[in-house]
Simulated scan of single mutants.
Amino acid sequence: MFDLKELEAFVAVIGSGNLSASARDLDLPKSTLSRRIRQLEANIGQSLLRRESNRLSPTEAGQVFYRYCHEILELAGRGQDALEELRGEVRGELVLRSHSAFTRGWFTRQVESFMERHPEVKVVLRTQTEPPRGDPGDDVCLWLGPLHDCPMRQIQLGSLSQGIYASPELLERHGEPRHPRELARYDWVDMMGVASDGVILHHPREGIYPLKPSQPSFRVDQFTLQGDAIVRGRGLGLMPHWLVALRNRHHPGAMQLCLPEWLGPALPVWLVHSHGQLPRRTRALIEHLKAGVPEAWNTRRVLEPVY
């Protein structure tokens, strides 16, 4: 019979190739980790690791055994989940990912309140930089924007409307635009190349306007960086009203809305998770997040922050 802690130690070392790094990941003394590896090798009767150029790599026996370790640990985890279902307990580890727009705001607050309600739950939270593709090691992903060819189950929590923003200093220097056709004379701060490909602006009475901004002077991959660049006067940018309102709450007047009746494309907010039967902790978190969705996400305009 294998000790699951020894198997976890072996899998961690294979993943990192380094005892010190694995010890940090597992929050163990290096001596304890080494002892578990030695005990596992003694139980098996074969060497599982060898040192090559200051890195630990699996022996032939280690390569074979490594494949089975994953299955053993996965089965053990599924067995634990099944027992928790019988007891009706919400406990265990959740691996979550979040779009960078939410990592320091609503999502983390909701996760922390969920952990306060269920103290037996442990959470690993990572930033998601690309649309989710279905990592089997993840429980839930919160994503902002379109999802294309995503094999996971998708729940739309709401949407964030967008507008064109600038710093007051930039508008003082160059004047405030009165119509989208005037936007071509301004520098532009672009989010992930979206605006450079062209966007459609919507007006409640005038209809639509296909906007093709000037060549962006600055391109970023996070709304926080885009907001920083806009505040520093590097150009105009298309940003979600809700995120700007949160920023202006802490830094009043840092960004000013231009052409307030013209809206950019709304960005859907998705909760993404795997198909099939979910552990109780995952189902409980999903319900917790759905219950805490800001009302402002279901409106076309947001000028006041909602926590």
Rank of each mutant, 00 (worst) to 15 (best):
Q156P: 04
E74A: 15
H118L: 02
K212M: 13
A184R: 12
R109C: 07
A76I: 05
V244E: 00
T108G: 02
A166C: 09
A42N: 14
R205V: 13
P252G: 06
Y186S: 03
G264L: 01
Y209A: 05
L303M: 10
G88N: 09
A184V: 09
V121K: 01
Q162E: 10
G233D: 07
L26F: 12
F223Q: 09
P151F: 06
G88P: 10
L125V: 12
R50D: 06
Q156T: 07
R133F: 11
L225N: 09
M192P: 00
L257M: 06
G175H: 01
R51W: 00
P180C: 05
D139Q: 03
L48W: 00
H203Y: 08
E71V: 15
L147Y: 02
A101H: 04
R51C: 11
R91I: 02
S57W: 07
R234Y: 08
G163T: 02
A9E: 02
A21I: 13
Q128I: 04
L144E: 02
R234G: 02
Q110F: 00
L49E: 02
A23K: 00
L75E: 14
R219Y: 02
D187P: 14
R91G: 14
R50N: 12
E261G: 07
H202E: 11
E84R: 15
V269S: 01
Y186P: 03
N54P: 01
R104I: 07
P305Q: 05
R36K: 14
R78A: 15
S57I: 15
R234C: 03
R35P: 04
Q80P: 04
R283C: 11
P216D: 12
R97L: 14
G253Y: 06
L7K: 04
M152T: 05
P252H: 07
R300V: 05
D228Q: 11
L83R: 14
V244P: 00
L236Y: 10
E89Y: 08
G235T: 01
N18L: 09
R104D: 15
P119D: 09
S161E: 08
A296K: 02
F218A: 04
S113K: 12
G17W: 03
H148M: 06
E6L: 04
R181H: 08
S100K: 00
P58E: 06
H179Y: 10
S113F: 09
L267F: 03
E84D: 15
M192T: 07
P216F: 00
R185N: 05
W297G: 05
S22R: 01
L236H: 08
R232P: 00
L144N: 01
R126V: 08
R281K: 10
L125R: 12
E85I: 11
V302N: 06
R50L: 14
S34I: 11
C141W: 03
Q46E: 15
H148S: 11
P204D: 08
D228F: 10
G17I: 00
S196F: 01
V220D: 00
G158Q: 06
A254L: 07
E206L: 15
P210T: 09
